[in-house]
Design a protein around this nucleic acid. Structure first.
Length: 491
DNA sequence: TGAAATGTTGGGGCG
DNA sequence: ACGCCCCAACATTTC
């Protein structure tokens, strides 16, 4: 009896149903690096993380008696060929468009060959299709979705890692195996990963440590502290979740346990768990619309007059917009592969509303630079900010980067850290250096336009322009309701 | 998981 | 002592 565990975004042993199914029997644990599968190619930061995560997972597997085998090539062929003569293939489900189609196809091929193929939910608290409205449709609004998901019964509890695994011999007919280093996941010329390595410990052990540190520390004051831009007030579990190094069930169980023993207030636990809820909701949207990262959820946005402005896009990407809190966020992203959630909203709003650049440009940049770039979360969140999404932010919600900075980074610590050229500026001017008197700038050693950019757009004018354009979109939609409806139904 | 404009209220300075 | 005005603080509405 031999089993094949096909690993993808589930690089852990704890609460890992596919691994668990293969325990107590000889099994192969295989990761297939397939760059031509039709799936969206991983971004640079994600590739770095994946390499590190595979290394960590290989060690964990070996310590448990297993062995991680890595193959490069067409995953469909590799898995189907490898499965010949095996009893079963196990994997954790994925939810994107190409991913779902491929997994379905492979399952059919395997069953034609008489190999049992079984997939599991290891990535979500509930499958996207499990949570439905009274009318049997999927939820389009977060709050009722999350309420229902919690009401329909307790979530599946996490299962501990199997005590002992057994590595099967690599079959004679098997494809050649490669080393992780040969996958080319680590950046070279230049190697820009230093800041990422300083910030993160990819792998299951790192994820568990992060969870514990969060529950023992910031969780208690999470509802208030989570919006603070400086310091470690959020869980930072997102990249670990993205690569399946920890399961949402494990996180939920640990957070609820902390609340049950009164280590943290129930409100704090609820607030944090609702963030897991947003992740779940994003997967519902991805399930409803597999091309969520490229197509507007609301078709009326297809007519939106996005500006093409390569120079402005570049200024945004490189953190040179002249708005300190935006630039700090973009530089944090570049340096560490991460950005504080609130700054993501501010920076995304700035690209979409102030610069009026298509949200897809921003989504693509985040996809390339975020370690936690997630097919559901990233797309759904960008559409949320743009207003093109389900349960989206209203079009007139335009973040004022100065006010947001003053509110959530009152002493400017976050800006000082990531925009060091402004480090010496007094707190009262640090979020709007163009308003600082000449002497203050001179005292801080800053000449605007030389050491730090002038704002690339004027806030008042940009806001007014965005409101006009977005309001016009609403009027267009009212003028032609029939066209909108038919477009939706045919999509 | 806004911001800005507009409206309301109430305390205190002042004639 | 009274009424008037100013304006901060808060509330509402509008984008």
């Amino acid at each position: 009896m031999t089993a094949l565990v096909w690993l993808r975004d589930d690089l852990r042993l704890d609460d890992q149903p596919a691994v668990r199914a293969a325990a107590e029997q000889p099994a192969l644990f295989v990761f297939v690096h397939d760059e031509k599968s039709g799936s969206r190619p991983l971004g640079g930061a994600s590739r770095w993380w994946l390499g590190r995560s595979l290394e960590a997972f290989g060690r964990e597997l070996e310590a448990a008696g297993g062995r991680l085998d890595i193959v490069r090539g067409d995953a469909e062929r590799v898995i189907v060929d490898l499965a010949s003569g095996m009893d079963a293939v196990y994997w954790t489900r994925r939810y994107g468009g190409p991913e779902t189609e491929r997994d379905t196809r492979i399952k059919a091929e395997l069953s034609d060959k008489g190999v049992k193929a079984k997939s599991f939910n290891g990535q979500l608290l509930r499958e996207p299709w499990e949570v439905k409205t009274e009318g049997g449709t999927s939820f389009k609004v977060f709050t009722p979705y999350w309420r229902r998901s919690r009401e329909i019964g307790p979530f599946e509890p996490p299962h501990p890692a199997p005590k002992r695994l057994e590595a099967a011999r690599w079959p004679q007919h098997g494809p050649p195996r490669v080393k992780i280093a040969d996958l080319g996941l680590h950046p070279t010329k230049p190697d820009w990963s230093g800041g990422l390595a300083e910030s993160w410990s990819p792998g299951e052990a790192g994820a568990r440590a992060r969870l514990k540190a969060f529950i023992d520390g910031p969780l208690e004051d999470y509802p208030d502290a989570r919006d603070r831009l400086d310091g470690q007030t959020t869980s930072r579990l997102s990249p670990h979740l993205r690569f399946g190094e920890i399961s949402p069930r494990r996180i939920l169980a640990a957070v609820e346990a902390a609340a049950d023993r009164s280590a943290v207030p129930g409100e704090s636990a609820e607030k944090y768990l609702s963030e897991l809820g947003w992740r779940e909701f994003s997967y519902v949207l991805l399930h409803e619309q597999p091309d969520l990262a490229t197509r507007n959820w609301s078709p009326r946005f297809d007519a939106f007059p996005w500006r093409r402005d390569a120079k402005a896009l570049r200024a945004w990407e490189t953190g040179k917009t002249g708005y300190p809190v935006v630039d700090a966020g973009m530089r944090e992203l570049w340096a560490t592969g991460y950005m504080h959630n609130r700054v993501r909203m501010i920076a995304a709003s700035f690209l979409i509303k102030h610069l009026m650049i298509d949200w897809r440009s921003g989504e693509a940049w985040f996809w390339d630079t975020l370690c936690d770039a997630d097919p559901a979360n990233n797309a759904a969140s960008w559409q949320w900010v743009a207003g093109s999404g389900a349960d989206a932010a209203p079009y007139f919600r335009v973040f004022n980067p100065v006010l947001q900075g003053e509110k959530f980074d009152p002493d400017g610590a976050y800006v000082r850290r990531w925009v060091p050229e402004l480090a010496k500026l007094e707190a009262r001017y640090i979020h709007a250096p163009w308003k600082a008197p000449r002497e203050s700038l001179a005292g801080a050693g800053v000449t605007l336009g030389r050491d730090y950019p002038e704002p690339i757009v004027d806030h008042e004018q940009a806001r007014a322009r965005a409101l006009r354009a977005f309001a016009e979109l609403g009027r267009e939609a009212q003028r032609k309701p029939a066209a909108r409806k038919s477009a939706k139904n045919s999509g």
